[in-house]
Design a protein around this nucleic acid. Sequence first.
DNA 1: CGTGATTCATCCGACGTGGATATATCCATA
DNA 2: TATGGATATATCCACGTCGGATGAATCACG
Lengths: 112, 112
Amino acid sequence: MPRPSAPLLPPVFHILLALSSEDLHGLGIATAVEDASGGTVELGPGTLYRSLKEMVRQGALIEVSSPQGTDPRRKYYRSTDLGRELLREEAARLARIVDLARERKVLEGPTS
Amino acid sequence: MPRPSAPLLPPVFHILLALSSEDLHGLGIATAVEDASGGTVELGPGTLYRSLKEMVRQGALIEVSSPQGTDPRRKYYRSTDLGRELLREEAARLARIVDLARERKVLEGPTS
DNA sequence: CGTGATTCATCCGACGTGGATATATCCATA
DNA sequence: TATGGATATATCCACGTCGGATGAATCACG
């Protein structure tokens, strides 16, 4: 069971971020997360479906009817107000950390 | 054993960030991380000392002599070039994610 | 001195992760 | 329309990480 408010679990955060712009189904979320992060974030099926189930139970996501013409096996998900709120808080938390890193000039250095 | 390049473990990242501005000893790092993150990141002794040992082994940190007048039991650590490089990469990775969140306007919403 | 606080360190239970695996069903193609 | 590969959801399990509990040494202070 995830923690109440504290830092969002990374998979949950990335799922919410993927769903911030459009409804997606399970595997669609996985690939969206994968290439939105440049391949640095991996979402195995175990983590994926476990997270989705838990997020629906928690009220961060709802399942919506599949768009016409798509594989009927797909289950599409949409972020709720709660989901957007959780995402916003976590993004703000990360933003503060990145700002701190900027203040300390840790982002400067060898141009990779 | 940590993964090769992939996302830094959060504790390692926060330790490197804490050491980016000054040399600190174990417990000093823990408190620095705690309040730099506004209390959202906790560093238990288990995670702390395990991480420090591993980071020294890996070459991300070195132990330095304690400043004069401080508790001699304290072991002070300093970030190495490798440590700064790892920190820079991870900070850049987080910055990309935050930027993506900004593009999607997820940071806007109820003024908390 | 001696008592409580500080510091480092290790151990262990709890939990999250992602791959392996299972099952069903869709789609392409012949 | 039959068949095989791809797709999709779902569960299970081994592994790794996390942080608290605990221990031991030593410091500061009355």
